[in-house]
Simulated scan of single mutants.
Amino acid sequence: MKVPTLLWSALIGAIASARSMTPMATLSAARLLGRATPGTLALLDRPLFKYGALAMGAGELAGDKMKTAPDRTVPLGLLARVMSAGIAGAALAPRGRERAGALAAVATAVPLAYVTLDARKKAMTRMGQTRSGLIEDALIVAAGIAVVALAVKPERRG
C-alpha cells in the first residue's frame, strides 16, 4: 500500500497539536537509533539539538501537569507548535518536498490545538488535570512513536 506523500507530515502535525515537543523528541530518538528521515534536515544530526529535543519533550510532559501550565493555544504555545510541527513535517516529507511537508504539518497542528484543548478540558472535568494529562501523554507519545517509526527507515551505512 502506497502512503500518500504528505501523510506522515500531517500526522506529526496532529501530534504537535497536543504536545508541542513530542514530534522533535521522537524524531531525535529515531536519529539516535540510526534511523534516517525521508526529508533532509541538518538539525537532526547536531547532538545539542537531539539531546535538547529529548530533554524538552520530557520537560513538557512533566510541566503539563502543573496547575500553572498555560493552555496550548496561547501565542507562545501556538508558536512552539508551529516551529516543532514545521521542522518535523519537513523531516518526514519526501526529499525535495520538505516545504510542503512543513506546511502540511503546521496546517494540521494549529487548528487541532484548539480541538485537542477542548477535549482535554472536558477530560479534566471528569477525571482531573493529572490523570487526564497522563492519559493524553500516553496516547500522544505512543502515536508520535508510531508515526515516526513508520515514516523513517534504517540509515544507510557505507
Results as ranks from 00 to 15, higher is better:
G34A: 11
R35D: 07
A36K: 14
T37G: 02
P38I: 01
G39T: 06
G39S: 01
T40A: 14
A42R: 06
A42L: 13
L43F: 10
D45E: 15
R46V: 14
R46H: 15
R46G: 01
P47E: 02
P47W: 03
F49T: 01
K50R: 15
Y51R: 02
G52V: 00
G52W: 00
G52F: 00
A53R: 03
A53C: 13
L54F: 05
A55C: 07
A55S: 11
M56W: 05
M56L: 15
G57E: 01
A58V: 14
G59V: 00
G59W: 03
G59C: 03
E60C: 05
E60V: 02
L61D: 04
L61G: 03
A62W: 10
D64W: 10
M66G: 05
M66P: 00
K67I: 11
T68R: 13
T68H: 12
P70W: 08
D71F: 07
V74W: 12
V74I: 14
V74K: 12
V74E: 14
V74Q: 14
P75A: 12
P75E: 06
L76E: 12
G77I: 00
G77R: 05
L78Q: 05
L79I: 10
L79V: 10
L79G: 10
A80K: 12
R81S: 04
V82P: 01
M83N: 10
A85G: 09
G86C: 07
I87C: 03
G89T: 07
A90L: 07
L92S: 04
L92A: 03
L92P: 04
P94T: 06
G96K: 08
G96E: 11
R97H: 14
R97I: 07
E98Y: 08
R99K: 15
G101F: 05
A102L: 08
L103N: 03
V106C: 07
A107M: 12
A107T: 10
A109G: 09
V110S: 04
P111N: 07
A113R: 02
V115I: 13
V115A: 11
T116E: 01
T116Q: 02
D118S: 13
R120T: 11
K121C: 00
K121T: 10
K122E: 13
A123D: 08
A123E: 03
T125E: 14
T125N: 07
M127F: 10
T130E: 13
T130V: 15
